[in-house]
Design a protein around this nucleic acid. Structure first.
Lengths: 213, 213
DNA sequence: ATCTATTTGTGAAATTTGCCACAATAAAAC
DNA sequence: GTTTTATTGTGGCAAATTTCACAAATAGAT
């Protein structure tokens, strides 16, 4: 269990989603083959990814959907509630605050923050907007674990510093910039402009996607 | 130049953003060292990434900011206009239609589509909303290259099939599901829920991030 | 014109990641 | 109870990716 590829973690998230869909459709059993097809990876890959964490199947019979789903939720830390806050209540921050599916995933939006005096004190989607100076206290009081960084590029590093100082453990970074944080804080970039530029590259370089089906 | 790692393409996008910021600040010259620091990778990595595409620096002196920026824009295909469409005018699709920075990046929003008869025919952020049956014709007429897939998970595969049939070349997939498309169409996932779940994993497994500074 | 200080570009080594074959084992069939 | 069939779990191998060391080359100083 020395070192687990980050790609494995991404795939586990995909497997979990597939299992949830299967369970919602009343499917009881599955196989590495089926998971592989849905996730568009090889069945070897599925089994290897799972093997990093233990043995979850029965040889000859495959996997039990609810069991494997429960195990994956445990592995990913999704069997507990997470408290999140949004930093930056511009267009994007507001859209995320409106997002209706948080609770279903055991993520609970606990607070919103902004730097603009005109926005501070307002209520957005039934959430009070605090100033950045309130961050340390609110993070502590409400037990906030994860921050959504939705500020403009130019303010992203400052806001990240404030989150770190307030004791946050993870950041979902929507700003199109690489932010610098201590090693114990995990940052996941969510950058659709970067994705768009990668699409551009692969359209003009069609040959660079691996050959053969 | 046989095969280029996908991670290299992601990093090129990052280098380009850094160069743009430097140029906006009037900086004329830079080095692999400086780019590496900003992108949080090694200087070796920067030079190796660039070497896949040619030689852009001067030994002993580093890189000229505007030159390298222009080259990266060319490599990524960003020196030409791209026409995009949004498929699915729910909350997310509307938020993206409102996004003000497209033109600045030479991406031009040309059309919006939805399946809901109540939405079809409306105008959202000065864009007419078409029905999905109009997709093939509008894609052809307006020369749309890239589709933003912002439909619910359950409709994502059908919408992707329609985009492919209409002759689109790339898809930015915001739906939390792996979609299946022919090899010549490139898909980039943009899935913040998946990112959020990865954050969850890394918070409960702090040891799994590489040791030492 | 020569020397020195830099910094790039790149082949090779080291590491990481993915792929595959097959042994292990459980369920089902007979 | 034995055989057959199916499918997992895993050790070893191959491929891809990153790291590194250093030669090549340029600008600037003397």
């Amino acid at each position: 269990m020395s070192t687990i590829p980050t790609a494995t973690i991404s795939r586990l998230v995909t497997y979990l989603r597939i299992l949830t869909t299967l369970e919602n459709h009343g499917v009881k059993n599955t196989s590495s083959e089926q998971l592989a097809e849905e996730a568009q990876v090889s069945a070897f890959q599925v089994r290897k990814d799972l093997a990093y964490f233990g043995r979850f199947g029965t040889r000859g019979a495959g996997y039990t959907v609810p069991t494997l789903r429960r195990e994956l939720r445990r592995i990913l830390g999704l069997n507990r509630p997470w408290n999140v806050a949004i930093i930056g209540m511009g267009r994007l921050g507001q859209a995320i605050a409106d997002y209706p599916h948080f609770e279903q995933y055991d993520f609970s939006l606990k607070a919103c923050f902004d730097i603009n005096p005109k926005v501070i004190g307002q209520t957005i989607s039934s959430n009070h907007v605090y100033g950045m100076d309130a961050l340390p206290q609110i993070v502590k009081e409400k037990g906030i674990d994860i921050g959504f960084l939705t500020v403009p590029q130019a303010s992203a590093q400052d806001a990240a510093d404030a989150l770190v100082a307030a004791g946050i453990k993870g950041i979902l970074n929507f700003a199109p910039v690489v932010i610098n944080v201590p090693r114990e804080v995990h940052v996941e970039p969510v950058d659709f402009l970067a994705g768009l530029k990668r699409v551009s590259f692969y359209i003009i370089n069609p040959g660079l996607k691996e050959e053969l089906a």
